[in-house]
Design a protein around this nucleic acid. Structure first.
Lengths: 146, 146
DNA sequence: TATGATTAGTTCGTATACGATTTAAATAAA
DNA sequence: TTTATTTAAATCGTATACGAACTAATCATA
């Protein structure tokens, strides 16, 4: 009974594994559209607000440019997005949805919603988890500061 | 109010971000020991039960051999582990802790525990999350089967 | 017992992910 | 105004992570 340090009892591992499960499930849904799961998250962000800088996008997704730059390039090559250097500030790169991403929005989100619904996650369960994960994230982030 | 498909409202994203936060926090703790976060999970599994096959280890960690093989090689190179082909069944490879992994167990787990404790996660919160993530994982995994 | 199927690991190709370094542009300061 | 600092991206090196293809060993079965 004394052992707290077992794999199964680690919250970090429960989150790690759950993230992996989500990844696999979403991958199976998104594969037919030629999208990866992180690429879908990029589209989600841009469907909400189009024409943002790489930095803004990174802030929303908690990703650095070291991850985003090559990912955006791939999505550009696959005609989901286009990049445009700002004229006012040439350091900035704005990302815009291309027609494909706009027209595929409904089919993609419908299919995703359908599959997630089929998992039968209760609304209360969903909202509690969202709330608790938010609290947890804050605690993890604020660690170190006193 | 109508938009369910925003990034912030996605449970998948909340889990994804939280996993990232855990990763960063654990990385900061484990870096001085020359360990990555997934490598630490491998040690956690082996500290519990030493001398398991690659496949057994993969089952515990929900990782395939495509991920584990190179990771174990790196941990072997860094003298945490050693590999041994089974004599009875030469397809199998058993993984054993090396002295370094045994002697470093206390320092590593102490430091990890210290940092996690400093996050002030309530026991009730912890257990509820563990429970809810377990339920969620089952729902995600059972998806597809009617 | 010879052959076909299964199994365990390895290897390969692709895609994240991160921190550190570099580059170029914009801003601040001297 | 020249120089120093800051900022936004890109690039680089390392480490996961996954599925598919491959190899070698074992097992099943005809």
């Amino acid at each position: 009974m004394e052992d707290f340090m077992t794999l199964k009892k680690q919250l970090c591992f429960a989150v790690y594994e759950t993230a992996g499960e989500f990844n696999k499930l979403y991958t199976s849904v998104l594969q037919p559209f030629g999208l990866t799961y992180p690429q879908y998250l990029v589209l989600l962000a841009l469907w909400e607000k189009d024409g943002v800088t790489l930095k803004e996008l990174g802030a929303k997704l908690s990703l650095g440019t070291g991850t985003l730059t090559p990912m955006i390039s791939r999505m550009e090559a696959n005609e989901w997005l286009r990049k445009e250097r700002s004229k006012e500030d040439e350091r900035k790169v704005y990302i815009y949805l291309r027609e494909k991403a706009v027209s595929q929005r409904q089919p993609i989100t419908s299919k995703v919603a359908e599959v997630i619904l089929s998992c039968q996650i209760e609304l209360e369960e969903y909202e509690q988890l969202m709330q608790q994960l938010s609290t947890l994230q804050n605690k993890l982030k604020s660690n170190g500061r006193q």
